[in-house]
Simulated scan of single mutants.
Amino acid sequence: MHVLVAGCGWLGSAIARRLLFEGQRVTGIRRDPARAAALASTGIAPLALDLAAPGAEARLPAVDAVVACQSATSDTPEAYRAAYLDANRALLAHARRCGARLVYTGSTGVLGQSDGLDVDESSPPMPLGPTAEVLAEAERAIQAAGAAGLGACVVRLSGLYGPGRAGIVERVRSGRLALGAGEQAWMNFCHLDDAVSFVLAAIARGAPGAVYHGSDAAPARRREVVRWIADRIGVEPARATVAPPGPDRRVLSERTRAALGVTLACPSFREGLIPLVPEVRRA
C-alpha cells in the first residue's frame, strides 16, 4: 500500500515507522518545510503542505489509504476548524477521488461526561467547550462520509503517552496532579504503541462510518495514578483543595479491541510507564 499520513508529528511519525516496517510506502505531511524535509531521512516521502489552504487537495499524491492525524496550531476554535474541518474536507475529497480508505484519529475529549460512569463507542458525544464542539463536528463529517460509501472511520484516542511524552510524571512531581479534591475522577490512557496498533487495524478492518476507541483496558482513578507515580519517583504526593476541571468517565475499548483484533502492549498505564520512569532505589 501507499499510505498518506497527514500530520507526521509524534503520533504520525510512529504510525509511519510501523507502516514502513511492514513494507508499505508512506508519504508524510508537515506544514513546516524544514520539518517535512527531515522525514526523508527515515524513509518517509516528505510533503510540505498546509491542508487547510486553498488548492491543497491538488498537491496530494494518489494513495491507497489516508491517516488524518494532523493537529491544530493553537487551542482556538479557529485553529481547530482549520485542522479538523478544513483539512479533513481536503483529505476526504482526495480519498473519494482515489478510492482510498481514511482513518481519522479523533479524541475521547468529545466525551465530556462527568458522572463517573462508563462510556463506550455508542455513547453520545458531550463536548465541553468550543474546541470540543469542533472535534465532534469533525467526527460527524467522517461518519457521514462513511455512510455515503467511503471507507472512512474514526479512532478516538485517550490520553496519549509514550517515549518522548510522559508529562504526567512531571505533573505529579511538581504537584499539579495531586491527591485530595477530585482524586476519585477517572483517568484514561493509551500508549503510543497501542495507538499505532489501533490505527493500523482500522486501516485494515475498520467499518465505514464506525467510531472506535483507542484506549487501554484499565482506566484508573486519579488517586491511583498519582500514588503509583509518586511512589515510583520517590516524592510525597501533593494535596489539592480544589478539583481540577475536566470530565470524569471510564472510556471502554473492549468492543473496539474485539472488532479490530487489537492486543494491547500496555493494558494499563503501569506497563507503559515502567520503562519511562526509573524507580527510585530506597535504602
Rank of each mutant, 00 (worst) to 15 (best):
L4K: 08
G12S: 11
A14I: 10
I15T: 03
L20D: 01
G23H: 12
V26L: 05
A37W: 07
L39F: 04
T42M: 13
L51D: 07
A56Y: 08
E57I: 11
P61C: 13
A72K: 02
T73A: 15
T73Y: 01
S74V: 08
T76E: 10
P77K: 04
A83Y: 00
A83P: 04
R89T: 14
Y104D: 10
G116N: 09
E121A: 13
E121Q: 13
E121M: 10
T131C: 15
L135G: 04
A138S: 15
E139H: 13
A144N: 08
R156P: 01
G167M: 01
V169R: 00
R176A: 15
L179P: 00
G182V: 02
G182M: 05
Q184E: 15
A185F: 10
W186N: 02
F189H: 15
H191A: 15
L192Y: 08
D193A: 15
V199D: 05
A210I: 04
Y212P: 12
Y212D: 14
H213V: 10
D216E: 13
A218R: 13
P219H: 05
R221E: 12
R221D: 04
R222T: 13
W228R: 06
D231N: 15
I233C: 02
A243D: 02
D248R: 03
R250N: 04
V251P: 00
L252E: 00
V262L: 09
T263K: 09
P267G: 12
I274L: 13
V277S: 01
V277P: 02
A283K: 01
